[in-house]
Structures are given as structure tokens and as C-alpha cells.
Computed example of a mutant assay.
Amino acid sequence: MKTSTASTLQDKTYDTLRHWLMLGRWLPGERLKIKHLADELAISPMPVRAALQRLAAEKALQNTPNCGVMVPRLSTDQFDDILANRILLEGEAAYLGAQRLDEDTRQQLVRLCQAMDTAIAGDDVKTYLDANELFHLQLYRASGSPLLLSLIETLWLHVGPISNQLHQDLAVWKTMNDAHHSLISALLAGDAAAVRAAIATDLHTAGSYLRTLCVNKN
């Protein structure tokens, strides 16, 4: 029973820290302190340490000598690779999801798009990122492929930290919902191919700016 309980706590801690990474809770280069996270989660350091090492093994975090666990900085080559795969996988998930969405979920996407408009107008990055994540998750879940969604979430782990900096360029920030509006229009028109294209546009729009925040190792 104790082993099962400890395992459950470790899994829960891992899921929480993984989700925080995807949402950009921490910035590239930021050091993650075990005690601070344990205090924040009101748990002992052990499951936090295990979760961080698990994320480091997945290369979502980085073990750095004398510094502990840190959020890695992406190179431009790494970012380009991630973006290309996101367009492939998320485009396919959106294409399949667009054909299978029920009406309630379709209307939820409309409301989330409106929520992102409000967040951008109020310069509320956290609310935007939360709504954006749910918007994409709801669409991709409708694809009916848990494996496809799992692969997409793995890629999100690597870009979450820099995604939290989208608001730093006002011109980019104000356009972050444009592709979502195009997606909604395509969705309501029953045009799955246009939904896929809107996802590609969305990723390219954010990616063109986020790439400038990466490290050029060439």
C-alpha cells in the first residue's frame, strides 16, 4: 500500500511539473529548486526530485553541474526541428478533429477564442496561454488518437518555456489570435483542410518570433 501511495504521489507530481513546463511556468535558463517546488506543492522533496529527474531523462529539463536542474535553452536548429514536427502532427490532429467534433465542443472552441481576444486586450499572458492550451487540446482530442496527442504534448514540453515570452513584442502579441479566428471560420464551414492550414499559420506566426529568442549555435 505504501509503495502504491508513493508511486501515485510521484506520478501526480510529475504530471503537475510537466504541465507547468508546457504552460511556460519557467523561462529558459531558469534553475528549478527542489525545496521551493516541494514547499509550493506541500509535499516532501523526494517526489519532486524524482519528477525532475524523469523530466531531465526526457530532455525536457537539463542537469547542469553545480547548478542542478535547469530549463534548457533551445538552439535555432532544435526549434526548427520541433516546429516542423509540430506542424505535421498538430495539423493532422486538427484535420481529424475537425471532422469529429461535436457541437458542444465546437461552441466551446468559439468561447475559448473569445477568451483569448479578451486576454490579449488585457495583456493577460497566463489567461491567454491557459485558453490557448485548452483550445488546441479540445480540437486534438477529437482526433480520436491518444498516441498522436501524446506526441504533440511531448513537443509542447520543449517550447512551453519560450512561449511565455510571446507578449514581449506588441506587434506579434496583438496577432496571436488571428489564426484561431480563421480556424473557427473553417470549422463552422466544415472545411477540415482549411482547419489544418490555420494550425500551420498559427504555429508559423508564433514560431517566427519565438525563433529569435533561441540560441544560434552555428
Score class of each variant (00 low, 15 high):
Q108M: 13
L109F: 02
V110E: 14
V110Y: 15
R111C: 12
C113T: 15
Q114S: 07
D117R: 10
D117Y: 10
T118M: 14
T118R: 14
T118D: 15
A119M: 06
A121M: 01
G122F: 01
D124S: 07
D124E: 14
D124C: 10
V125L: 07
V125Y: 12
V125S: 09
K126F: 02
L129M: 00
L129F: 01
D130M: 08
A131L: 01
A131P: 06
A131V: 03
N132C: 03
E133G: 09
E133K: 08
E133M: 14
L134M: 11
L134S: 14
H136G: 05
L137N: 01
Q138T: 12
Y140L: 02
S145E: 06
P146Q: 04
P146T: 05
P146E: 02
L149G: 11
S150V: 12
S150T: 11
I152P: 06
L155E: 03
L155S: 00
W156V: 01
H158Y: 12
V159D: 08
G160K: 01
G160R: 03
P161A: 04
I162R: 02
I162N: 00
L166P: 07
L166H: 15
H167I: 13
D169E: 15
D169T: 14
L170P: 12
L170D: 15
W173E: 13
W173F: 09
W173I: 12
